[in-house]
Computed example of a mutant assay.
Amino acid sequence: MMETAAPPNRPLKRGWTTGSCATAAARAAYELLITGSCPAMVEIALPGGRRVSFAVAMHDASGASATAGIVKDAGDDPDVTHGAVIRATVQRADDGSGIAFRAGPGVGTVTKPGLPLPPGEPAINPVPRAMITAAIDEAATLLGATRDIIVEISIPGGEELAKKTLNPRLGIVGGLSILGTTGIVVPFSCAAWIHSIYRGVDVARAAGLPHIAGATGSMSEKAVQQLHGLPETALIDMGDFAGGMLKYLRRHPLPRVTVAGGFAKMTKLGQGLLDLHSRAGEVDLDWLANTLRDAGAPDELVTTARNANTALQVLQDAQRAGFSAGDIVAQAAWHTAHRALGNDAIALDVAVFDRDGRLVGQSRGPDHSPLPRKRR
Rank of each mutant, 00 (worst) to 15 (best):
L359R: 09
T141H: 12
A204Y: 09
A318G: 08
W16E: 00
L269D: 00
L33R: 02
G180P: 08
V201D: 07
G36S: 11
F101L: 02
S196K: 04
G342K: 06
G144P: 00
N9F: 09
A191F: 10
N125S: 06
A332I: 03
M1H: 13
R355D: 08
V350I: 15
P116A: 12
V283F: 02
T304Y: 03
A145S: 15
R373W: 15
D73F: 08
A305V: 01
I155F: 08
V173A: 14
S97W: 08
A260R: 06
T304M: 05
R10L: 15
G365Y: 04
G114L: 03
R92G: 05
A295W: 01
E138N: 05
A5H: 07
Y198C: 13
K163E: 14
T336K: 06
G19N: 08
P126M: 06
D356S: 13
L276R: 07
F188S: 14
A345D: 14
Q91N: 06
F353M: 10
H277T: 08
F353Q: 06
S324M: 05
A61T: 05
G262E: 01
L32A: 14
L285K: 15
I212K: 05
W193N: 09
G183Y: 13
E121Q: 14
K112F: 01
Q225F: 07
G229Q: 09
M238Q: 11
D148P: 09
F241A: 13
R205W: 02
S324C: 10
L273T: 03
K374G: 15
W287E: 02
I86W: 01
T303G: 01
E300S: 15
L12S: 07
I99P: 06
H82Q: 10
T146P: 13
D237I: 01
I34V: 15
A325H: 00
L246A: 06
L209C: 02
G281E: 08
A305Q: 05
V52D: 06
A139T: 03
G114S: 03
G114Y: 01
A5E: 09
G361M: 07
V203Y: 05
Y248R: 12
K164D: 08
A45Y: 00
G104R: 04
A29C: 12
T146E: 15
D317C: 01
R169Y: 11
A61H: 02
R50D: 13
S363K: 06
P210T: 12
H211Y: 10
D349M: 04
V350S: 03
A305H: 02
G217V: 00
E300H: 10
L371Q: 14
S189T: 05
V259H: 02
L170K: 13
H59Y: 14
T67V: 12
A40Y: 04
A260H: 08
A130S: 14
I184P: 11
A29K: 04
R306N: 09
T35I: 07
G15I: 02
Q319S: 05
T291H: 11
T67L: 14
T67W: 00
R364T: 04
I124V: 15
I86E: 00
F241G: 04
R51N: 13
G108K: 05
D95Y: 11
L285I: 13
M245W: 04
S65T: 14
E160N: 11
A215F: 04
G243W: 10
I34H: 03
G270W: 01
G174K: 03
D240C: 12
A66R: 02
T81C: 11
S369G: 10
